[in-house]
Simulated assay, not measured.
Amino acid sequence: MIDRKSGPSMIAAFAIMAGFGLAFYFMPRMMIAIGEISTIAAALFAAALVGAFFDVFWLRSRFQRRMNP
């Protein structure tokens, strides 16, 4: 069951996953558009987006660890 502590965490995780899900859904189109300017920029964009996905959850875990020692 959802209690007072896990509810906000689940909502935040869902919002993060939904946001990145949309970003990854449109990533091929964005990469093609960026790739018309520079293929290196398109590759860097994709790498930054994938890295940001993991960084957000890493930062969230650090925040949760600090708030709940």
Rank of each mutant, 00 (worst) to 15 (best):
R29Y: 06
L49H: 02
M27T: 09
G35W: 08
F45G: 00
S9Y: 12
A42L: 02
L49D: 01
F20R: 02
A46M: 09
S6C: 02
V56A: 06
W58T: 06
S6P: 00
A33D: 10
F63Y: 14
D55T: 12
S6L: 07
P28K: 07
I2N: 07
G19D: 04
R65W: 11
L22S: 04
F24T: 04
D55Q: 07
S61P: 00
I2L: 14
L59I: 09
A48H: 10
K5D: 03
F63E: 13
R62H: 09
A47I: 12
G51F: 14
F54W: 15
G35D: 05
S6A: 04
A42P: 01
A47T: 11
S61V: 07
A52W: 08
F53M: 12
K5C: 00
R4H: 06
A43P: 00
A18C: 04
A46T: 03
R66Y: 14
F57G: 03
A13N: 13
F24G: 01
A46L: 05
L59Y: 13
L44T: 03
I2Q: 10
I2V: 08
R66V: 03
I16Q: 01
G35V: 07
W58G: 00
M10E: 10
R60C: 01
F20Y: 15
G7Y: 09
F24P: 00
T39Q: 15
A42E: 03
L49W: 05
A12K: 09
L49F: 03
G51D: 10
M1I: 08
G7T: 11
L49E: 04
A47E: 10
L44R: 02
G51L: 15
M27W: 06
G35K: 09
I32H: 07
A46G: 15
T39N: 12
A12V: 13
G7Q: 07
E36L: 05
M10I: 14
R4S: 11
G21P: 03
I11D: 01
W58L: 12
V50L: 15
T39L: 13
F26A: 08
V50T: 13
F63G: 01
D55M: 13
M17G: 05
K5A: 04
F57Q: 07
F54E: 05
I37P: 00
A13I: 15
F24M: 06
T39P: 00
G19R: 09
E36P: 00
F14W: 15
P28A: 06
S9N: 14
A52R: 04
K5M: 02
L44G: 14
F14N: 02
D55A: 12
A18I: 13
P8W: 14
F57N: 10
N68D: 13
F54T: 05
R29A: 10
G7P: 00
F54S: 07
A23H: 08
W58A: 08
S38E: 06
L22K: 11
N68F: 15
V50H: 03
L22R: 11
N68M: 10
Y25K: 09
A43V: 04
A23G: 08
K5S: 04
R66P: 00
S9C: 01
F14H: 04
P28I: 08
F14K: 05
A18E: 14
